[in-house]
Amino acid sequence: MNTNRTGKAVIVIGHINHDRIWHLTEPLRAGGRITWRSREARLGGGGYFTARRLLDFGHHVRILSNLMSDSHGQEAIAALAEDGFDTSLITQRQGETDFADILLDPTGERTILSNERRLARTFALAQPVSADAFYINGPHLCETIRQSLNAAPLVVSQLPLRDGEPRPADVIVGSKADMPGKSIEAIWRDAQAIAGTRLRHLVMTDGPDPTSVFDGETESSIPVPMHVTVRDTIGAGDTFSGALINGLLNGAKITEAALDASRSTAEWLLNREAMFAEKSNK
């Protein structure tokens, strides 16, 4: 991890999940009897992975999220603080932690089983806050958060997939896999309905295929500079968002930031795969 703390102040608004990952021995199939070889529990979620990458780049990261008040939530807050995150904006709520079960097949394809109550969690903020950049990964925002975003110099938001409420954003990030058959122009209209007139760029990843950067008129195709094959791609898209924000904070053009984010995410996947292989061989 980069221990340099001279970076920018970034507030990440998103969920911190407790993921229970089941490593399957074969792909899922209807009516099948599937075996698994191992399972593990670890922190995850869109907010966590993006915040983690920004921290790795040396930025001061405050996480605006919520965790339950049980032992799992308490342990998560302690672990985040020990890693170097500012946890002062995390709300603790009464109740038990809901784990998200992630079924991971040998090809890296994942299936996520998530309690609908957990998806409906909202983010609380008592008074407006400021930062050099904000990142949002969640559909529901309170008015105090929107006030904070209005005053921020840079706002990047994940494109909500379900009933996303409006929020001012300069850049919207998404995945073409989540919107099969939809044109970039149609996705831009969806993004503009969320971000309003402040929207400058739409960035859509497409797995191993080129990333599209669209400004409402011109589409730039950004090639993937490094193709990797790994067994675990969980968090790759969120890690891409963190690297993209890092590039923008460093003054890169959006196309340059997207190219570097793609390369950086591939390297992150390879490093994590190597760490998992080392652990399994011990």
Rank of each mutant, 00 (worst) to 15 (best):
F85R: 03
V12F: 07
R37E: 14
I194F: 15
S69C: 04
T87H: 02
S280G: 03
G84E: 06
K282P: 00
I187H: 05
D238C: 04
P128A: 02
D56H: 09
I234H: 13
N4V: 12
A30S: 15
F276A: 03
C142L: 11
S280R: 03
F49N: 13
L125H: 07
G138F: 00
I11V: 13
L67S: 01
A252F: 13
T122A: 13
K282L: 08
F57E: 09
A258F: 03
P139N: 09
I90A: 02
T239C: 12
G138W: 03
L248N: 09
H72T: 12
H18D: 06
R62N: 09
P27V: 10
Q127L: 09
G108F: 10
E185H: 14
D98R: 14
D83V: 05
A126M: 06
R146K: 15
G7H: 05
S183H: 08
E217I: 12
H60A: 14
A186M: 11
E185L: 05
L149E: 12
L259E: 04
D238Q: 05
N2F: 06
L24V: 14
R121S: 08
R20V: 11
E278P: 00
S280I: 02
T233F: 11
G207P: 07
I187D: 03
E116Y: 04
L104K: 03
L259W: 01
